[in-house]
Design a protein around this nucleic acid. Structure first.
Lengths: 346, 346
DNA sequence: CTGCCAATTTAGATCGATCTAAGTTGTCCC
DNA sequence: GGGACAACTTAGATCGATCTAAATTGGCAG
């Protein structure tokens, strides 16, 4: 027993390779290789012998070496700006589901929304010859950050944030539909007369599409647009809370607000709650419909975008890009409004 | 806008290799290799020529091939049960910070707390000859799920959840200190007389350590232990809300509760708020101190465990395990109580 | 001119697998 | 006995890099 050297914590001098298994049985590497790949070419007797010997010697298949020879890879990289964001997390689940099913190994790299780190990560993935990449680009990304991955890099899909000048397949939610849905609910259902789009980084491409449609729908319905409340803003609960508190101190809020995300809505809801108790009511809508939103006080009305399905769609688009057969929809699901207390529906 | 038109989309028949760059300049592969690795052995003139030619031909360094030859790898895998959980996310940030600094490429794999997926992921990482692994094991993991990675696998560190029979380095928060801190605050500061530990999966190892110390401290201080409220429970806001609502309907709650996590506290806080308005007050403490907790209504008092620093510690332990020089602490930071409204501190 | 040394450059083996084309069995049938 | 065929098995080249040990170059002292 060679593996009995446990006392000094020195695992083994050298890892076991296919050729070791082969030699130990008087077979060739090729045969062992065929067994490892479940080829029907080897006899049942040989197969069993090889598997047993491999187990006995502690052989571990070297996927990396195989990848080099076959010129394929099973690693797909998700390059995400913030893994903690539940929306991003759920999208990742969807991608992983679709790609995992056909045998890919999905891993996530966190750019923390920093372009330099993102550049490094993309370089690594290209260098490792990843099979494919799905990325929500960091906020300040420009076309040349993606030059490296377009030129000879793996099939890549951009998610959610569009970047001018990058001709890579893009998958995003239907921002216009979100804008329309929000406007319709606030105006037609709640009769709001002065409306705003609250929060969202000025550089985030979803903000542009959503807000533009939202604003048009709102003004066409005859309501006023509150430009001050619609200034861009970092999309966190904290930032939203402080900005809202500040604006509330300066004057009455709009009577209808579509927030850039549920996180933003949390901050706004808190500011409204802690503000003057007898103020006129303000209908608040979030976007994303995070699980927590129903738990909030007041429970947050939100436009759900089904991030998991969005992730699945993205996975399918990537598969198609890689030239593989694909089943299922390749268009993002339509957004849906879930009305709760924060807009006054209760 | 459809950019998926495949017409002129034939990038190159074959990827450029070192030998192509070398031939194109009349040099040898070895020289090009030295340039790519910034070796001081090549002359400045040659270096510049090689870099220029590589750029011109669109050469992309093949890290995977290099890894095979050098028998090392720059990939470190984080194997996590739930990327969306902010605690997990922040731990990941810490690990990434420490390992990224010394040149490792950190990627996260999501087990979704399923052991079968976890087994597959660990197998992949071993197969890819990852440089190291950090994992928060899936809840139902047993020792034999980790047999594969101990036998010839990469250096591995277990995080947060301990597993009986697995002799791998373990890094976790000081659960006993959390229990003591919670008990002391509820009893000494708020004078609670009947106390419970609410929520947490029965299989989660942190629950055991925390609750045991907490319970002992509470009973030694002369307060009563509420066993019904201390039954185990899935650690989500939703589950906590429903269980709490049910228990509240059956009778008055304890006057002090330490929750297994902030998420659990959110659910409990909601149930208490929606319950009988004139009920006796109940002091609620969370654990983790997520960023949102200060935004909640009421703002949630919580025991902070500094997950980012915990991640850094974990990264350092892994570096040590890989035989690399390490600077900085290798013991987890002590927990700290952040008192807010939910326990009555305001 | 020769020899020596430092500074560069390189040929060929190697990492651990797969692939191609060819080799070895054993059986069956004329 | 021997040819055809099916069922396995295998030698040797190959993937794209690195490493070792040796070759080449130029400069300079003797």
């Amino acid at each position: 027993m060679r593996e009995g050297q446990e006392q000094g914590d020195r695992p083994e001098a050298r890892p076991v390779r296919m050729i070791d298994v082969a030699n130990s049985l008087g077979l060739s590497r090729a045969t062992v290789s065929l067994v490892m790949r479940n080829s029907p070419l080897v006899s049942e007797v040989t197969r069993r012998a090889v598997l047993a010997e491999a187990e006995r010697l502690g052989y571990i298949y070297n996927q990396a070496a195989a990848n080099l020879r076959t010129q394929r890879n099973d690693l797909v990289g998700l390059v995400m700006p913030d893994v903690m964001n539940p929306f991003v997390g759920e999208v990742s689940l969807g991608v992983q589901e679709v790609l995992g099913e056909v045998g890919f190994f999905v891993m996530i790299a966190n750019t923390v929304d920093r372009v330099e780190l993102q550049r490094q990560i993309l370089r690594s993935l290209v260098g490792h010859r990843a099979a494919g990449v799905v990325t929500i680009p960091a906020l300040t990304s420009t076309a040349d950050h993606f030059a490296g991955i377009r030129r000879g890099g793996p099939p890549t899909v951009l998610l959610l944030r569009h970047i001018d000048g990058v001709e890579l397949p893009f998958v995003g939610t239907d921002e216009a539909a979100i804008g329309r849905l929000g406007a319709e609910h606030l105006i037609a259902v709640h009769g709001c007369r002065r409306v705003a789009y609250f929060g969202g980084d000025p550089l985030a491409s979803p903000r542009v599409g959503r807000m533009e449609t939202f604003r048009r729908a709102v003004t066409e319905a005859g309501a006023d647009w509150d430009a001050t409340w619609s200034e861009p803003l970092e999309a966190t609960a904290d930032a939203a809370y402080h900005r809202a508190a500040e604006l509330l101190a300066a004057g009455p809020p709009p009577d209808g607000v579509l927030c850039h995300s549920d996180n933003v809505a949390y901050g706004l809801a808190r500011a409204l709650r802690l503000g003057t108790p007898d103020a006129a009511p303000c209908a608040v809508l979030g976007i994303d419909d995070l699980h927590q939103s129903a738990m909030w006080n007041p429970s947050i009305s939100s436009i759900a975008t089904d991030p998991v399905e969005l992730g699945r769609v993205c996975g399918r688009v990537l598969l198609a890009e890689m030239g593989m057969p694909v089943e299922g929809s390749r268009t993002p699901p339509p957004p849906e409004l879930h009305a709760r207390a924060s807009c006054g529906c209760h």
